[in-house]
Computed example of a mutant assay.
Amino acid sequence: MPRFPRPAVVAPAVVAIGLLAAAPAASDGPLVSNPHASAHFDLTRGQTPDSVVAERGGSADVSFAFARQVVKVTRERRVHVLATLPPEDHPRTALVNGAVTLGLARAQDGTLYVNYATGTDRTGVWRIPAGGGSPEQIAQLPPDGLPNGLALDERHGVLYVADSALGTVWRVPQSGGAPTAWARGAALTGLPGSADGFGANGIKVHKDAVWVTNTDRGTLLRIPVGADGSAGAVATRATGLDGVDDFVFPGHSDVVLAALSTSNEVALVRPDGTRDIVLTVQDGLSNPTSLAVRGRDLFVADAAYLTQRDPNLLKGRLDAYFARQ
């Protein structure tokens, strides 16, 4: 993962990448069509869109890392603030320094969960009522960590948090409470001596497993969830993913769309390791950090951490192939 600029806007953890699984069939058209900016944001106000989740009806919820906000972007391109996390006068956040809102997850009833990292006892998972309102901290995580990616397994009532600084996947009750260090190990840590030090980053729950990316190591990992909820052995499912951020499973298979932040690309990666670039800077990407899919709508959050220009929410239409997966 690249070194981020430290001035006015300091980049939080680039969120994660992904790939894998059933190889897509050939398509005569583009795998992502009609990419366009659904909204443009203001870098000077800390509106760096780090994580995105899709809602029904074509809208999306986005975390603004340095504005400490979670907002809703409607299909009419209006931006509504759902919640603002409390200010931290003296943040000491690992790897980032500033107070940042990162990973975002949404429950079926509209409740939102967001990671807030400050380097203080406010570091942890916060809950936002459906439709917006006052955020409430439901789990405290170590202040020397960087809770980055966030995934919700609503079927089992748990949240998973990828900690980029401590190389740990935390498991938190959805209702709130004490976190458990669910998975640890070298595969989840950053590289020794790395200038950036980001280990576990993006995270998704998929097919009875937790998938995690390690930004420093450029890997995608799969951790099976045991019948008792424990973590199985970590398996590396992809390597060489330099500059990757968040990832998403656009269908039921293991095919992944990955945000390649430093090269301003979104890639489709097949289980055999072959890849296609489906979006580029020419489509409006500006350091993509997170992806979300609902139906055939694809959302890409562009935080502009490195380009320092045009943070935006990109929207495109997925090829019908993904609906069959």
Rank of each mutant, 00 (worst) to 15 (best):
R6L: 13
R6V: 07
P7N: 09
A8F: 15
V9W: 11
V9T: 15
V10T: 13
A11W: 05
V14K: 09
V14M: 12
S27F: 05
D28N: 13
V32D: 12
S38H: 12
Q47I: 02
D50V: 07
V52T: 10
V53T: 14
R56M: 13
G58E: 13
A60Y: 08
A60V: 02
F64K: 03
A65R: 03
V71F: 14
E76L: 14
V81Q: 15
T84L: 11
E88I: 08
H90K: 12
H90L: 08
P91I: 03
A94F: 09
L95K: 04
N97I: 07
L102S: 14
R106K: 14
Q108W: 04
Y113K: 12
V114T: 08
R122I: 08
G124L: 03
W126Y: 04
G132K: 11
S134F: 11
P135Q: 05
A139F: 07
P143Q: 07
G145L: 10
P147N: 13
E154D: 03
R155N: 06
H156A: 04
G157M: 00
G157V: 01
L159C: 03
A165R: 09
A165T: 03
L166G: 00
T168P: 08
W170H: 10
P173N: 15
G177S: 07
P179R: 07
T180L: 12
A183Q: 08
G185K: 01
A187W: 05
G199M: 01
K204A: 09
A209P: 05
V210Y: 02
V212A: 04
R217H: 11
G218M: 07
L220C: 05
R222N: 11
R222M: 07
P224F: 01
G226H: 07
V234P: 05
R237P: 00
T239K: 10
L241M: 13
V244L: 15
V244P: 06
D245M: 06
D246G: 15
F249E: 05
L260T: 06
S261M: 14
S263T: 13
A267D: 06
L268M: 10
L268D: 02
L268Q: 09
T274N: 07
T274D: 05
D276R: 15
D276M: 05
A292I: 01
D297F: 00
L298E: 10
A301Y: 00
D302Q: 04
D302M: 08
Y305M: 06
L306N: 10
T307L: 10
R309D: 15
R309C: 09
A320K: 12
